[in-house]
């Protein structure tokens, strides 16, 4: 049987977010007694005192980071992606590393420690880096006949993500904080799924 490595790697771009959404958004909160999806962040699933700390960090955050890295490696191998697009792919790869490290440096939620500082850096900084990657990638594929329709989709959904992120990070006493965070984090990874599904379907 001939292995189509490119398709397997590109499939990581939609398999990863699907697993992440099913587990971190839905399954894990139900395993954590007393956890409030509406008002608690996803980082708290992997916090030091969480009863599902290992599950959430290893099979939620770190596994997802590995999927993102594999997907970006798949993008990097594609001939359809030009130099600008590959520069964007580099940033997506870094995003994967940071998502992986989110599962390594879990927050303590017991005062602000060096571990919390590391958690904040790897958990929050991945999104501006991911945004840079998506914008570069969007312009990188703008001349590709089969993929150029993705450029406005990525940019419009990207702007919507910025709006959600602004609400989550800069609104004082935000109600339903957990829901806003899930929306702000979910949308960019839905963009990644759209990219992956499009390239996967175009691949022979």
């Amino acid at each position: 049987m001939k292995i189509n490595l490119d398709k397997i790697l590109i499939a990581c771009g939609f398999a990863g977010p699907i697993i992440f959404f099913l587990t971190v958004y839905f399954l894990f909160p139900f395993l954590y007694s007393g956890y409030d999806i509406a008002n608690q962040t996803i980082s708290e699933l992997g916090g030091l005192n969480s009863p599902i700390k290992t599950l959430a960090n290893v099979f939620g955050f770190s596994l997802f980071g590995i999927f993102i890295m594999l997907f970006s490696f798949g993008l990097f191998r594609l001939n359809e992606i030009n130099l600008l697009g590959k520069a964007g792919v580099f940033f997506i790869f870094v995003t994967g590393i940071l998502m992986y490290l989110t599962g390594i440096f879990n927050g303590t939620l017991q005062g602000f420690t060096n571990l919390d500082l590391l958690h904040v850096v790897v958990a929050n900084y991945q999104f501006p880096i991911f945004a840079v990657g998506l914008v570069l990638f969007a312009f990188g594929i703008s001349n590709n006949e089969k993929l150029k329709w993705l450029t406005p989709v990525i940019l419009i959904l990207g702007l919507a993500t910025l709006g959600l992120a602004y609400v989550f990070f800069f609104t004082h006493d935000l109600q339903n904080r957990g829901i806003w965070q899930r929306a702000a984090i979910g949308l960019p990874y839905i963009i990644m799924m759209i990219i992956a599904l499009t390239i996967y379907r175009n691949k022979k």
Binding site: S62, F105, G111, F112, N114, D116
Partner: peptide
């Protein structure tokens, strides 16, 4: 990579970083 993450989460080798700042 997944194994390393599992090891870190079970053994907490970075617990020395958990002192409050």
């Amino acid at each position: 990579l997944l194994g390393f993450s599992l090891f870190v989460n079970i053994n907490n080798p970075f617990s020395f970083l958990a002192n409050p700042l």
